[in-house]
């Protein structure tokens, strides 16, 4: 117990030292990378998920299987594939993105998009038949029909967004591989935790962990609050 308490005390000390130096930069980078990646997942994933959930086409079932598989894609695999694509001399090497924050955004978006697609498709596809029938009866343009459907199930879609955010912010394998954990440039909370643990700086590592949990808590609390506010109407 003594050891754990000691680490805990170190962690609290690191936190009470304010977000000075490294911590501030790491939190800032973590936040904007995760938010941009989640934003991309929302912009790409929700429309695709709506098409998949509402549409009637032959490949629907196989695409659903693929999306569900991709939802569980190992982050390190996503990282590896992106590394190969972005490798200098590789297909997109000329973009010069490897070991930069945009590469990390790409990696996280790759992981978040299937989640946004899969959960949105499940939510929209789960609309009661009466709602789908009424929606068809309105003869709206396709995009409007999708928008009404998403709005109808938005608490579940909000949950999809929260899940996507949770996935990218807590992910370490992919951002480590394509980001490189370069101090002050591509170091985020999760890779910093790995780093500090390796250097036996357990207090600092735990402090980063607390911040990570806190960020996930804030985002989920926000979405849950919106969901409850809506259902109270």
């Amino acid at each position: 117990m003594g050891f754990v308490l000691e680490v805990l005390r170190d962690a609290l000390e690191a936190l009470s030292g304010g977000l000075g130096g490294d911590l501030g930069a790491v939190v800032w980078l973590t936040s904007w990378i995760a938010l941009v990646a989640t934003g991309i997942a929302v912009l790409v994933g929700i429309p695709l998920g709506t098409v998949l959930g509402l549409g009637e086409f032959r490949a629907k079932r196989s695409i659903t299987v693929l999306v569900n598989t991709a939802m569980g894609m190992p982050p390190v695999l996503a990282g590896l594939v992106l590394l190969l694509l972005l490798w200098r001399g590789g297909p997109f090497g000329s973009w010069g993105l490897l070991f930069t924050p945009p590469a990390m955004v790409l990696a996280q978006a790759t992981l978040a998009i299937p989640i946004a697609v899969g959960l949105t498709a499940a939510a929209v596809g789960g609309l009661p038949p009466a709602a789908k029938e009424q929606l068809a009866a309105f003869r709206l343009p396709r995009w409007r029909r999708g928008a009404v459907a998403v709005r109808e199930v938005w608490p579940a879609v909000g949950g999809a967004v929260a899940a996507a955010f949770g996935r990218v912010i807590s992910e370490v394998g992919a951002v480590l591989i394509v980001g490189g954990n370069i101090r002050g440039e591509t170091r985020v909370l999760t890779t910093a935790i790995v780093q500090e643990t390796r250097q036996a700086q357990f207090g600092q590592a735990l402090a980063f962990g607390f911040v990570l949990l806190g960020m996930a808590l804030v985002v989920n609390a926000g979405i849950t609050w919106l969901q409850f506010k809506d259902s109270a109407q």
Partner: peptide
Amino acid sequence: YLPQAPWMFR
């Protein structure tokens, strides 16, 4: 078309 069970959306 008016469906048998008209749906009220949000």
